[in-house]
Amino acid sequence: MIFPENITGPQFSVGDFVTYQFDDCELTLRLPVVPHNTDKVDDVSPRRDYRNVNTRDWRPLGEQGFTFTRLAVQKWKYECERTHDNIASCYMTVSVLKHTLKDADSLFSLNSETFQEHHLQVIHADFSDYEQTKGDEWPSASNNFLAKTITRPVLDGLQVQLDLVDGAEAPTLGALFSLGKEYTLNIEWSFSSLHYPDRQNPYSRELLHKMKFELFDEFLSFIDIEYSPETLALIQKLKTA
């Protein structure tokens, strides 16, 4: 990706390939190489094989029965090449959600429509107490959390925007992809503008906003999910049923 107006930072196109094994698929991510800094966050799970994994210590997500573990948590910054100022920061978490037994048995995640419907239902339920007062560009139940389909050859993913942190200057971008019957890949992406106490960020809010979406799309474009032959057969069967 060509960054606008003298901005530099990690490029996904030269990131590290990291592959995780699941019961129904193999997931490959391209994680950015985070420059070494005292405040960097670059935690990538050393476990690569999640087949028959013990999930008892996974953390709960929301109140609808999902539990999760982190595959990667990374934070990196973008800087202005001219002034060397840090001008934006990106905080990304990549997690695996484990479905409840009932949900796994329903095979909701092996069909693009039911996968998106189910996750949107869960988000609506988790955000039922949330009142959005920040305007139309912010996600809410009434605008369906600005959901859109991420088209993929086998199973489509779901992109949403969520107000995950009180006081955040912009919503968090989220993407969900099916990892087979039992798991979902959940990506959360916060992008914030940085400034120093004695001066404002020279880059406009609009430019950084546009850059955020372009970066997110580029990161998603490098995600590769190879389903096992059995899972592919099951997906095909459900499609034609």
Binding site: E169, S193, P197
Partner: peptide, 22 residues
């Protein structure tokens, strides 16, 4: 030394369902 920052507000936070709320 003056650290850069964003506009996040300090104070007490906790998880409320899946949100991090004040």
């Amino acid at each position: 030394v003056l650290h850069e920052s964003n506009n996040s507000e300090g104070g007490l936070y906790e998880y409320k369902s899946r949100r991090i709320g004040k």
